[in-house]
Computed example of a mutant assay.
Amino acid sequence: MARRSLFPCRHRGCAALVREPGYCDKHAGDAVGWKPDKQRGNRHERGYGADWERLRGLILRRDRYLCQCDECKRTGRVLPATEVDHRIPKAECGTDDPANLSAINADCHKRKTAKESARARARARR
């Protein structure tokens, strides 16, 4: 039986080799990412069903469909908002309380989520 070749660790700059595509033991914390619906539950099971859609519409109307992210507010930039974001992420004990929700532009939302994901990965490494 032929031996399978080893794969390089996906962590940038790491020279370790692993049997399965992914990360070595040292960088396993980098593997934090999207999980399939089987593991994390579908949108309704995670709290994003019909009630969320109603709340989302209320927040967008409250914020006049304008981005309320910190960067846009700080720089005076006016961008249309199409999404609703948790100011304190649910993963960090944030709630669906309207005071914790704000309208946000899709690009700003991606940027904010990337920062939150980096923070979560850093916590996972500790």
Rank of each mutant, 00 (worst) to 15 (best):
G94C: 07
Q68A: 10
A99W: 07
A91R: 15
E92W: 11
H86K: 06
G76L: 10
T95P: 12
R87H: 09
R64P: 00
D63K: 02
E92R: 14
T95H: 09
L66D: 05
D63E: 02
D97T: 09
T95V: 11
C69D: 10
E71F: 09
R77A: 14
T82R: 13
P98H: 10
C72R: 01
R87A: 11
V78W: 06
I88K: 15
A81H: 02
C69F: 03
A81Y: 02
R74L: 05
Q68P: 03
H86L: 10
K90I: 14
A99M: 09
K90H: 11
R62S: 06
E71K: 06
P98S: 10
V78G: 07
D97C: 10
R77C: 08
E71H: 11
V84G: 03
T75S: 15
L66R: 13
I88N: 12
A81D: 04
L66H: 12
D96P: 08
D70G: 05
D96S: 14
R62N: 04
V78P: 08
R62A: 05
R74V: 02
P80T: 08
Y65I: 03
V84F: 04
C93A: 15
C93F: 07
V84L: 07
P98D: 02
C93K: 12
K90T: 07
D70N: 06
R64A: 15
C72L: 05
E71N: 08
A91H: 13
G76K: 04
D97Q: 09
D70P: 00
C93T: 07
T75G: 03
V84M: 01
P80R: 12
D85H: 14
A99H: 12
A81L: 09
A91Y: 03
E92M: 13
V84Q: 08
T75L: 13
E71A: 13
V78H: 10
R77L: 13
D85I: 00
L79T: 06
D97V: 04
L66S: 04
R87D: 12
D63L: 01
T95E: 13
